[in-house]
Simulated assay, not measured.
Amino acid sequence: MTKSTKKELAPDQSQELLMVLQTRFEKNKNRHENLEWTTIQTKLEINPEKLWSLNEMENTGGEPDVVSHDKKTDEFLFYDCATESPQGRRSYCYDQEALESRKKFKPENNALDVAAAMGISLLTEAEYKELQQLGNFDTKTSSWIKTPAAIRKLGGTLFCDFRYNTVFVYHNGADSYYAARGFRGVLRV
């Protein structure tokens, strides 16, 4: 008998997560004005793999919440809305190439592979700035963001944080990692 690789939650786990997400949705109306939970829940129920990804976001401390609706694609966008970079996704370098390049003190994993395994993508710079319009995030931590290929080709990567009432975008070597740097993700449903 082969083991199923289908990424799906058990029915009781799905219901529990939907309750957590609905409570967060109702508590943070400023993040998604003019959106209705019932429409979002229906979409989640017919896309169990997306619910599985949201559970991964939740289990790693991301506190996912709906932040917008893309009318062109009819997709709801969930971002990690934890106040600080998700605790369960810190101390990773940027990507596999960076991980392999480290000779000593390699981190456990890398942000891009962890995100892909979760079924999410790192926030872009624009998405990160959009998130910061909804509150103050990463005031003590920082988060890797999706880095343009031209920068990554030269060995660099980008990360952001929020200090002095300003969103800062910085650069670092892709193989660097810090206890206070993680990554925030986006999931399109």
Rank of each mutant, 00 (worst) to 15 (best):
T2V: 03
K3D: 06
T5R: 09
T5A: 06
E8A: 06
E8K: 07
L9Q: 01
L9E: 01
A10P: 00
P11M: 02
S14F: 01
S14A: 15
Q15F: 02
Q15R: 11
L17E: 03
L18G: 07
L21H: 07
Q22R: 11
R24T: 11
N28D: 12
N28I: 01
K29W: 09
N30R: 12
N30Y: 06
E33R: 14
L35G: 05
E36F: 13
W37T: 08
W37N: 08
W37Q: 12
T38F: 13
T38R: 14
T39V: 13
I40P: 13
I40E: 14
I40V: 15
Q41I: 04
T42R: 15
E45L: 15
E49A: 15
K50L: 06
L54S: 11
L54T: 09
E58Y: 14
N59D: 12
P64V: 03
P64E: 09
P64A: 07
D65S: 14
V67H: 06
V67M: 13
H69Y: 15
D70K: 05
D70T: 03
K71S: 11
T73P: 00
T73Y: 04
T73I: 03
D74R: 13
E75N: 15
L77V: 06
F78E: 10
F78P: 06
Y79K: 05
C81W: 09
A82V: 06
T83E: 10
E84C: 06
S85E: 08
P86Q: 08
R89S: 00
S91R: 11
S91P: 11
S91Q: 14
Y92C: 10
Y94T: 03
Q96V: 07
E97R: 11
A98E: 01
E100V: 03
S101I: 05
R102S: 04
K104F: 12
K104G: 05
E108M: 13
N110F: 08
D113P: 13
A117N: 15
M118Q: 12
M118I: 02
G119P: 01
I120S: 09
L123E: 02
Y128P: 00
K129A: 10
K129H: 08
K129P: 02
Q132G: 08
Q132E: 15
Q132M: 15
Q133N: 15
L134C: 05
D138L: 04
T139W: 00
K140I: 08
S142A: 14
K146R: 05
P148M: 14
P148Q: 15
A149R: 11
K153D: 11
L154N: 13
G155H: 06
G156D: 09
G156A: 10
L158R: 10
L158C: 06
F162L: 06
F162W: 08
R163W: 05
Y164K: 14
T166K: 03
T166M: 00
V167G: 01
G173H: 02
A174S: 10
A174L: 08
A174Y: 02
Y177S: 04
Y177E: 00
Y178Q: 10
A180K: 10
F183C: 01
F183L: 02
G185Y: 08
